[in-house]
Design a protein around this nucleic acid. Sequence first.
DNA 1: CTTTTCCGAAGTGTCGACACCTTGCGAAAA
DNA 2: TTTTCGCAAGGTGTCGACACTTCGGAAAAG
Lengths: 234, 234
Amino acid sequence: MTDGGVEDLRKELLFSALRGSAEDSSLAVAIFRELAISIVEGRLQPGHEVNSAELARRFSTSRTPVREALLLLERESLVIVPPRRRPYVSQVDMRQVREIYEIRGSLYGLVSDLVVARASDEGIDGLRAWQKLLTDDAERGDVHAYFWHNVGFRNAEASLSGNSELQRRLSSLGLQMHRFRHLSLSLPGRLLHSLADHERLVSAYADRDAALAAAVSKSLVLRGLRAIERSGQV
Amino acid sequence: MTDGGVEDLRKELLFSALRGSAEDSSLAVAIFRELAISIVEGRLQPGHEVNSAELARRFSTSRTPVREALLLLERESLVIVPPRRRPYVSQVDMRQVREIYEIRGSLYGLVSDLVVARASDEGIDGLRAWQKLLTDDAERGDVHAYFWHNVGFRNAEASLSGNSELQRRLSSLGLQMHRFRHLSLSLPGRLLHSLADHERLVSAYADRDAALAAAVSKSLVLRGLRAIERSGQV
DNA sequence: CTTTTCCGAAGTGTCGACACCTTGCGAAAA
DNA sequence: TTTTCGCAAGGTGTCGACACTTCGGAAAAG
């Protein structure tokens, strides 16, 4: 069961993006998590109505915790809650994807700057370990594993930046984009390009070359955007 | 009443940062706005408890809309809502300020890139108009007016970037920092440095020099951080 | 005195109820 | 047959209530 490892990673990364994995035990947070995962994994389609009354029935609770869960989902831009109208799963258009990728590109550039400046050699070895996993996945052509190891790599990078606010905001942005990123990696050739970029990025870190690392990081993100544009899925 | 203009600007900018100025008419949003303004203007001190029961009494409502308002405040990082404990106004330490300023620096660098690439000449003239206001304020030594015209300048810049997600996120970040930025401008010499940076920034825009604009933009933010560090108010 | 235990006041999370608003459908009008 | 209007079904925002948890101080133990 080599996939078991990836599945565990998937859950861990999803939950860490969903507010610090705190065992909150409040109904609102539980409902929030359940719905968030449904949305990012595509089981709840954009535009789908999620009215609080029906959800309350489904989860056998009152509407109060459901309403709070919906507010939490809105904070992650996964749901729109218009006043006095039924909430629905947010519809993301290409313009918005482009805007978010521009932001992600800039912030990952910052991550690279900070990693070069602050990360220990051991930290960078850690990134190299992630990259090794990516290489294996690419050789096996295992897109699913590659996707989640890639998320792990980005998350490790963000963590090494030493800026926890930055890490939080990036994982929130990443969450919104999960719906699309998954598709884009299936494009022919995309995976190898991505792998080569990671290779260059890790080298730049090893050489402590901030300018190069930031440039590669940005271009890595931008290439992801191009892939989504080309896939025409949005 | 030359100050009337600045007061209007202050309200407009605060409200635009507080979720699209929608006339929501819901109690939750009204309470959210009231508390948000109290917090960023320092009337509600960091660490101050804001429990839902007392607020409900104060606003003559039930606890339901108050709880929702608190969730909205948490989204803006103005309040912490620990599970099963009393919520309180978020305590921001120097580490967090530094982290947020790093993010702001990177994102304003992106803004500058985008402004150079996309803004019309008229748009850049608009920035020049804001800068004229700043010059006047500096000559008069009017720190309060300078502060808000500065916020207006940054906001106009973000708007010219053509990336509305970016604009939203920056104004959210700005909101959190209002509490400190105000103080930092009062430091001797700070205002003139800031003014000179704005001058250089507008020139770079006029010359369509992306690299210079981004560099100045980042350094402008970083200088703000240094001022806060030096003021020792955090 | 100091430390521990216990209790009551106060606050949180959740519930079911109710008035108002929104919406889609069917009856009446054109 | 199409358009307009009105109304019932269902959803939202808000409320007051209740059980459970937290917290701080008083009483008991050391």
